[in-house]
């Protein structure tokens, strides 16, 4: 007479619970990272957290070597991400400078250039080549570009007088009028 005796030994329940919790936690972490990556840029309507931008020598703002976004409360901020290795950035460089020259006397609009993943000598050469005069600085540690989740350069972010993003331009501007029309949306 023979019989099959069931095997009772196995992984203890608490070990199984820990393993499952670990797997679920890991999958959740991967999910969060993937969804953040696919979110795209910061969307209009978002309040932009404060950040500090160090400025290139010769491109300071009112003598200051670094500025914060909060310094410009009450003013409209045009934030342009660019790089010297970026060919499309060259297409809009003259338009941005012309728009800056138009708004500079009024003092209601601030233009800030953020040099993305660039070397300083090349960045400076670019600024000189296109005669840029508004404040510019490097994106140290790519912290600002990560905050805006930029997908590439050029990208320009328009932040209103209350620190809220209201327009995102991906790619180069085609004319000065295009820039002016976006700024005009928020100027009285």
């Amino acid at each position: 007479m023979t019989e099959t005796i069931p095997q009772k030994r196995g992984v203890p329940l608490w070990v199984q619970i820990i393993i499952w919790l670990f797997i679920v936690g890991l999958l959740a972490l991967v999910g969060v990272i993937l969804s953040k990556r696919q979110q795209g840029t910061v969307q209009p309507g978002a309040a932009i957290p404060d950040f500090t931008l160090p400025l290139f020598s010769g491109y300071e703002y009112e003598g200051r070597s670094e500025v914060k976004l909060s310094d410009f409360q009450g003013k409209l901020v045009v934030l342009n991400f660019w790089a010297s290795w970026c060919k499309p950035c060259e297409q809009e460089a003259a338009e941005l400078e012309a728009a800056w020259k138009f708004y500079e006397p009024g003092g209601e609009v601030i233009f800030l250039g953020i040099d993305y993943v660039d070397t300083e000598p090349e960045g400076r050469a670019y600024l000189k080549k296109f005669g840029i005069t508004y404040s510019n600085g490097p994106d140290m540690g790519t912290k600002i570009s990560q905050m805006f989740r930029i997908r590439g350069v050029p990208e320009t972010y328009f932040i209103d007088q209350y620190g809220v993003l209201y327009y995102v331009k991906v790619g180069p501007f085609l004319s000065v009028d295009e820039i002016k029309s976006i700024i005009a949306q928020k100027l009285p």
Partner: peptide
């Protein structure tokens, strides 16, 4: 290790028993 362990016990003779008895 569990796959290679004998799972069948002979109850009649009493000679072979598994650990699970």
């Amino acid at each position: 290790r569990e796959w290679t362990k004998p799972k069948v016990a002979s109850a009649g003779s009493g000679a072979e028993r598994t650990e699970a008895s």
